[in-house]
Design a protein around this nucleic acid. Structure first.
Lengths: 146, 146
DNA sequence: CTAGGTGCAAACTGTTTGCAACCCT
DNA sequence: AGGGTTGCAAACAGTTTGCACCTAG
């Protein structure tokens, strides 16, 4: 009974939360389903505008992302440039973190079991009911380092 | 010959980089020296405006923060709300990471040796010349969780 | 004297909001 | 029919930039 894809799970979670369906949300969900790493709202807007027939207004994009974040279907990723990025989370979406190149902005995902267990342990010791965590390594990518 | 405080080290690094002195930068440096955790640019502006005689224009604040970040005297911390925060880094500035309450925005510092060693190891294995790292745990603080 | 530092104001860009129209259910 | 959903446009907030003036070295 558990959904095969993130998209399916998302639709069922949304339905369970009493939400109706709509074109804008559908378009955002499908776009996110196809991504392997985080997108910013402007990137989402541009990507949707490119595929005729899957347009969504800026306002709807932000509203949908807010909803999805609240339902913990996407996670907000803060990788700098004063702009938020979003990516899907939960079963079916590979958990990972990010490498950011300070020069060119290249965003690369990575994951590490030891780090995760350290975080898991920490989450129980800290004065906060932890919902999610985020790790960002910054520096220069191979191309920029020369 | 190593400077006792972050402020002193900052001044010497700036001098070494051929920078002249100025009132705005001085004000920002002194303010940062006095902080234990990250401030946003608007917070810095307000804090300086509050203390008569240590005013700095918005533009200068951003320019100074950019400089300091490039010289690795401060680190940009991305804790959400689409707003960057800055805090001093390096010797003399206690290295730490952040807990963020998604409800009230409360920012709390923490540190963990095991986590640091996992990061240190990772930094050598990853396709990026790592300059710095950032770990953020998000959730609900005790007050908000009830 | 000269290059860097600063302030002001305008321009930008990402994000939020008010409101009327729309469409699932 | 009714309430969530959407689009548009205006309002916001943080950040950046152009330019003239000031100041440290």
């Amino acid at each position: 009974m558990s959904a095969a894809t993130w998209l399916e799970r998302a639709e069922s979670v949304l339905a369970g939360a009493g939400k109706k369906r709509g074109g804008a949300r559908r378009a955002v969900l499908e776009l996110l389903q196809a991504q392997t790493c985080a997108l910013s709202a402007p990137e989402i807007e541009a990507a949707l505008a490119a595929h005729a027939g899957r347009r969504a207004s800026r306002a709807s994009i932000y509203r949908v992302l807010d909803e999805l974040e609240e339902l913990r279907l996407v996670q907000r990723v803060e990788v700098g440039q004063a702009m938020a990025r979003y990516e899907r989370v939960g079963e079916g979406a590979g958990h990972h973190h990010h490498l950011v190149c300070d020069r060119c902005g290249l965003l690369t995902p990575f994951s590490d079991p030891e780090l995760e267990s350290a975080i898991r342990r920490l989450s129980t010791q800290v004065p906060l009911h932890v919902h999610e965590h985020e790790i960002v390594l910054r520096g220069e990518c191979r191309d920029c380092a020369g």
